[in-house]
Design a protein around this nucleic acid. Structure first.
Lengths: 224, 224
DNA sequence: AATTGTTAGATTGGATCCAATCGACAGGCA
DNA sequence: TGCCTGTCGATTGGATCCAATCTAACAATT
């Protein structure tokens, strides 16, 4: 896994503990697809690769387990969680519950600056080709519209599941290429007009369309 | 904290690892109120109390942090998360997004046995006085109606936030005494009639009422 | 008197070591 | 042949030890 080494080197952030560093690095590696689903995460191997002992690795793996990114079986170790249609549906069910709620609570507190920022992000997505970057921009776009909700746990939970969706997005982009930019624009327009119901309707369509696209992808993969 | 020792002794479940045991025990202690908000969780103290080394304690605390039950600050340790009105609102915003979604997805797959079980649980709540037991029964009642959704992550997330709400429920019961049994019955009735919209409406009222009750409790506490 | 530097104790983060468990494979037995 | 069993290597779970960091109290300086 040469690509993991690159991820370890990258990332300008500073970390207060080794555990934080390992957690953030592994998280990015899993979400970016550098670590494929089903990959076993051997503690000893990661320890030598990160140049530290097994303990920070173990604590990081525990936290990733709680975030649903790795499966942990006692005495058998951790593996990157598989990607399945059932999992994708599960993720969409959660997002289509949380995101409309976040949007409704946020909309009254959003101002022109927020909408302008959202539109800048849409433009950035247009001029981007790297799937990982596109995923991050998409996430920031959505979170910009939800930020007004001001409820930290709701927002953290929403972002966590948006992040998890990045793993699927890669496959979606492989078949489709577009990630619903028209809907992104319609969403901002509805928000500007303070039309809450329309905004939520657009968001739901956006999610349903992405879900359908992934469903088709999994069907095609199963058939091959 | 004499009550913690009782919790440690209790619980008939078998655990495969020490970490699992510590996590489950501390979780129950926090949710039951045996460990009050703000209580520092010293690793060394817990280690001697559980009669094991600090390592399983640390891993358990990491997982509790990821579940939002403790705050972990580097080099400063863990404390039980505070209970605030903002936190309660946050929790309700999440539940009122997830639970209607779970109910909608579940309802088509529920049968008479499920409704009968739900009604048994309502009856059990009627004849129960212990707040901790009532919280558990309430949780099982709600989860019974959501179980048909069949999406493991959505259900786990829903249950996690129902569990978290137990911490608030204790205060609610202290002021109110009732936990919306009338709404529980109306909810099952609507489910039996396969009236999805009515069921969701009842559920939303149920959540809104509980939220209002807690809001009043916090207002009273702030005034005193 | 207020602020800053310093030092000691407490507490956590991380490394190393040992014990327990799992999986695979070889050999015995019906 | 097919199944059970026991041994061995790999890997994880847990214990113990040391290093790094924080808190608080006190001393020194302005």
């Amino acid at each position: 896994m040469a690509s993991l080494d690159q991820v370890i080197q990258a990332g300008g952030r500073r970390f207060r503990t080794a555990t934080e560093f390992v957690e953030a690095t592994l998280k990015q590696a899993i979400l970016s697809g550098a670590l494929l689903p089903g990959t076993p995460l051997r503690q000893e191997e990661l320890a030598t690769r990160f140049e530290m002992s097994r303990m920070p690795i173990r604590e990081a793996l525990r936290q990733l387990e709680a975030q649903g990114l790795v499966d942990f079986e006692p005495h058998r170790g951790a593996i990157v969680v598989e990607i399945t249609l059932a999992d994708s549906d599960d993720n969409f069910a959660i997002r289509s519950a949380l995101e409309p709620q976040a949007l409704r609570l946020s909309l009254p507190h959003l101002g022109p600056d927020d909408f302008a920022l959202a539109e800048d992000l849409i433009a950035e997505i247009d001029s981007e080709n790297d799937p990982a970057r596109m995923g991050e921009l998409n996430r920031r776009f959505h979170m910009t519209l939800y930020a007004g909700a001001g409820l930290p746990r709701l927002l953290a939970l929403t972002e966590q599941h948006l992040v998890a969706a990045d793993r699927y997005l890669r496959f979606h982009l492989a078949t489709d290429g577009d990630m619903g930019q028209a809907e992104h624009r319609a969403l901002v327009a509805a928000c500007r007009a303070r039309d809450e119901n329309e905004a939520v309707a657009v968001l739901n369509r956006h999610l349903a369309r992405a879900r359908a696209g992934l469903s088709a992808f999994f069907a095609a993969r199963a058939a091959s």
